[in-house]
């Protein structure tokens, strides 16, 4: 366990000291929500603003980046060789990949919280008032799932480049199917049904229902989906992770 903490510490250090990643995790989502919100503000009324919409939709989209961060933190050239030394050292193989998941989770949770707080203070995004805690917990579960997803894809494909390419397809697909960019309900029942295959749809719908209907019926299923998917991703990683791929 002691070794796990040390590896986790090093992974966290690598994440928090990469200026480009910090920009991608903090500046980019802030600007994205503000720009989208500002540009569409005129087509919204006063009860629900464009920032309320994009403050949730784009933030869910940003959570997807956790997968990119964990994949890069796992296989990026800069850390690949030092990781190889971990394979030689008396450390349980599970620690090596799970620490990347946990480190990415911590990194993304911190940056996500920061961005959310700024958006709340600056443009007053509605995060559910008294139900804020529920929303926050669901988002954290989602961050964990996407962190685990990135590492899982790395363990399956064993190449950073292919992982990045495949992830960008999966994540865009999740985003579009989840209705984060534009509502899919106008495209017929079939597409509406398919959209439930995207984890984003579960998170987005649950958030919307809690914030605007005070209805938590979707909440536990959404949390359940996240927990199950996370467990599956971590389990698959543990099954497929081979230290020798680093050598």
């Amino acid at each position: 366990m002691d070794n796990f903490k040390k590896i986790l510490g090093m992974d966290l250090f690598n994440l928090f000291t990469n200026p480009m990643w910090l920009a991608y995790a903090i500046v980019f989502p802030l600007v994205l929500v503000l720009v989208m919100g500002f540009l569409t503000s005129a087509s919204y009324g006063s009860t629900v603003t464009s920032y309320d919409y994009y403050g949730i939709a784009m933030m869910i989209y940003i959570i997807f980046n956790a997968a990119t961060f964990s994949a890069n933190g796992f296989m990026e050239e800069r850390v690949k060789n030092p990781n190889m030394r971990l394979v030689y050292s008396p450390v349980k193989p599970f620690f090596i990949h799970f620490s990347k998941v946990l480190a990415t989770f911590v990194f993304c949770s911190v940056t996500f919280t920061l961005v959310g707080a700024v958006l709340y203070l600056v443009v007053g995004v509605n995060y559910g008032g008294g139900y804020f805690g529920l929303i926050y917990l669901l988002m954290l579960l989602a961050i964990f799932f996407f962190s685990a997803l990135g590492v899982m894809v790395c363990c399956v494909l064993r190449s950073e480049n292919s992982t990045n390419q495949l992830l960008s397809i999966i994540l865009t697909l999740f985003g579009v199917l989840g209705g984060l960019f534009f509502p899919l309900d106008g495209f017929g029942k079939a597409i509406s049904a398919i959209s439930w295959m995207s984890p984003a749809k579960w998170i987005f719908s649950a958030c919307m229902q809690i914030i605007y209907n005070r209805d938590i019926s979707m909440y536990l299923p959404a949390c359940g989906v996240m927990v199950m998917l996370s467990a599956a991703a971590v389990g698959i990683s543990a099954k497929l992770f081979k230290g020798e791929d680093y050598i």
């Binding site: 850390v79 060789n81 190889m84």
Partner: peptide, 8 residues
Amino acid sequence: PQDLALYE
């Protein structure tokens, strides 16, 4: 190891 395994 043959490759430099260091955090640069």
